[in-house]
């Protein structure tokens, strides 16, 4: 373990301060590295409050971050504060929505009109017109019945023409 640390320290020091010797502290570098990382994360805060102790702001920002994360992840029923609308605000919003709805719906009229059909069957306004229409021609009727009868007889004539064995033994047939 000690060996690992010394190796790490060696790399760090050689890049920053030149060559390390055997008296270089093993624990100095990891701690300073930690502080450095925190400083980077709260760079904005530091630049604004350059006179404050950097360690304190780091701690506070870390604390607030932890608190925020906890608040977003934990369900705290007691802390849920129901936001009640003021009567005045409620009335204003209802008015605003009423005006806006008319504007928005006027723009989307075409898209919405199709989706408002509540019935599959549509109402026929004057059924007597359709009902009093001309009857079918005798020829057309004859064509329909004859072609239908032909189709029915054709369907009835469908048969399986049995030529080969229905069950074929796989493998066995090839070997023999």
């Amino acid at each position: 373990m000690g060996c690992c640390w010394s190796l790490l320290c060696k790399d760090d020091n050689s890049s920053q301060n030149g060559e390390p010797n055997e008296r270089t502290h093993l624990l100095v570098d990891p701690i300073s590295n930690n502080i450095h990382i925190q400083r980077v994360s709260s760079e904005n805060l530091l630049s604004r409050n350059s006179n404050d102790a950097p360690k304190k702001t780091d701690e506070q920002s870390a604390l607030t971050r932890i608190l925020q994360e906890t608040a977003t992840n934990v369900i705290d029923v007691a802390a849920i504060d129901s936001h009640n609308l003021q009567q005045q605000e409620y009335i204003e919003r209802v008015k605003m929505y009423n005006i806006k709805i008319n504007q928005v719906l006027a723009g989307n009229k075409g898209a919405l009109a199709n989706s408002l059909k509540s019935c599959l069957l549509e109402d026929v306004p004057q059924p007597e017109k359709i009902l009093s229409g001309d009857l079918l021609n005798r020829e057309d009727r004859h064509l329909m019945t004859s072609s239908l009868l032909a189709a029915v007889s054709a369907i009835n004539d469908i048969r399986v023409d049995h030529k080969e064995d229905l069950v074929v033994p796989f493998g066995l047939g090839l070997n023999s």
């Binding site: 929505y97 989307n108 898209a111």
Partner: peptide, 10 residues
């Protein structure tokens, strides 16, 4: 469809 068009209002 009604909800999606009303959502535009909000």
């Amino acid at each position: 469809p009604i909800a999606s068009s009303l959502a535009l209002t909000v």
